[in-house]
Design a protein around this nucleic acid. Structure first.
Lengths: 203, 203
DNA sequence: GTCTATAAGAAGATAGAC
DNA sequence: GTCTATCTTCTTATAGAC
């Protein structure tokens, strides 16, 4: 990893725990192993590092989504693959989604960082809401709609069904972000959630 | 309101949007209408203001819980009142809980402030997790257990049932914290959630 | 309880040598 | 691309007059 990348990752480490304004350029440089002024040969300002992290995440997310069980691009295509979905498959899907959000270090740190900056400006608020509310809900609603059409699940509002599936995932995820020592409990509760969810919606 | 209280409320206004470290003592004092050094006659440090806010919230929460539909103290007592609970009552309960978390200005601002400081230290992380995860889940699990015993709801894991009831509330709450313009949508989705929840769990 | 003056240091960022 | 030296501004906090 070159110095520019090293700066970005160490800045992210610090921003994601203490927040942008509580971290000094001096501190980032020290962790990298250079002096603060050297850092300005790579980034024109502290804010520039922050923006580089966001850009990197948008790039990385596009790539990850491709290789993912759910492409995240066209839920209608995905849904056709899951029309015959059993309870086990749904469990698999939920776990996979949860583990991606929880175990991809870069994703975790960027989420934490944005969590700490979400009220600063509208762009970041909108970005967070899109990434962790609207996009997953819309996506899963389309998925469940298709599965309802094929009589796997009872006829209910697919958007609310998506909310019922996703909201516990999100709550447990944010719990783990704060208290990583509770990951095991969270994971067990996640399993219990999806199994009970399947029973409730099963036709 | 005296100057000491004024300082606390204005500090909270600023901390809850920009975070503790991004707000200067000078700025707080300016908004209050005094000079920065005068502020130190009321609080011994900036950190001291932060801690005063947390203390004030703990006081206020104890009082609010008393007058609340759910006492928040003994769920077994509460549950007996709700044994005959209908779908409409559950809707009422959910809305009330949601509106308390969303419309009590002090509660909203303190939640936002702690959201921005939650990764700084373990005490704040634990406080957030207790307030917005463990306490509500435990409380509602006990409530639902009693309601299952009296055959109102189908026999399922009461803790997971509590998760199913509460997680969408939390997700919509944090959405409103970021995007207050989406409150109306959130509220409608909340209603749809509780109605569908009732249908799913109804015996 | 407010003010002005000021300390003492840390902040982000630039200039210019190597 | 790294360094030292430096600029300028801002930071928290104190001293002491009124």
């Amino acid at each position: 990893m070159n110095t520019k990348e090293k700066i970005m990752h160490i800045a992210l480490d610090l921003f994601s725990v203490r927040g942008f304004s509580a971290v000094s350029v001096h501190e980032i440089a020290k962790e990298v192993g250079i002096k603060a002024p050297s850092l300005y040969k790579h980034y024109k300002s502290k804010q520039d590092i922050f923006e580089a992290i966001l850009l990197q995440m948008q790039k990385g997310y596009q790539q990850e989504a491709q290789g993912f069980a759910l492409s995240g691009v066209d839920p209608n295509v995905d849904a056709k693959q899951y029309i015959m979905m059993s309870e086990v498959d749904l469990l698999q899907l939920g776990k996979q989604l949860f583990l991606y959000f929880l175990k991809d270090e870069f994703v975790v740190k960027v989420r934490k960082m944005i969590t700490l900056e979400q009220f600063h400006n509208k762009d970041l608020a909108d970005f967070y809401s899109l990434q962790y509310f609207h996009a997953p809900i819309e996506y899963q609603a389309t998925l469940f709609q298709t599965m309802m059409d094929s009589k796997i699940f009872r006829q209910e509002d697919p958007k609310v069904m998506a909310l019922h599936f996703y909201a516990p995932l999100f709550l447990l995820l944010t719990l783990c972000d704060r208290n990583s020592d509770q990951e095991q409990d969270a994971f067990e509760l996640l399993e219990a959630h999806i199994k009970q969810f399947s029973r409730l919606y099963k036709n």
